[in-house]
Design a protein around this nucleic acid. Structure first.
Length: 59
DNA sequence: ATAATTTT
DNA sequence: AAAATTAT
């Protein structure tokens, strides 16, 4: 229950594509702001990769 | 180093 | 079990 909207991401294969993360979560140490992370699958290779999501991405 | 999460 | 992700 976390991911919906497609965002622009640079795939590991080096292509700029619009993808929706399969999963999305917040990655933040205690007391720090941290970042939001999305788990994506490269449509070219089928390989999974992680990228930062916009700070305002709805988890 | 730290945080969560999943693929590899 | 380790890698990767970002920025503090």
């Amino acid at each position: 229950m976390s991911s919906k909207k497609a965002i622009k991401v640079k795939t590991p294969s080096g292509k700029e594509v619009e993808l929706a993360p399969e999963k999305a979560w917040s990655l933040a140490p205690k007391g720090r702001k941290g970042v939001k992370i999305g788990l994506f699958k490269d449509p070219e290779t089928g390989k999974y990769f992680r990228r930062k999501l916009p700070d305002d991405y709805q988890i």
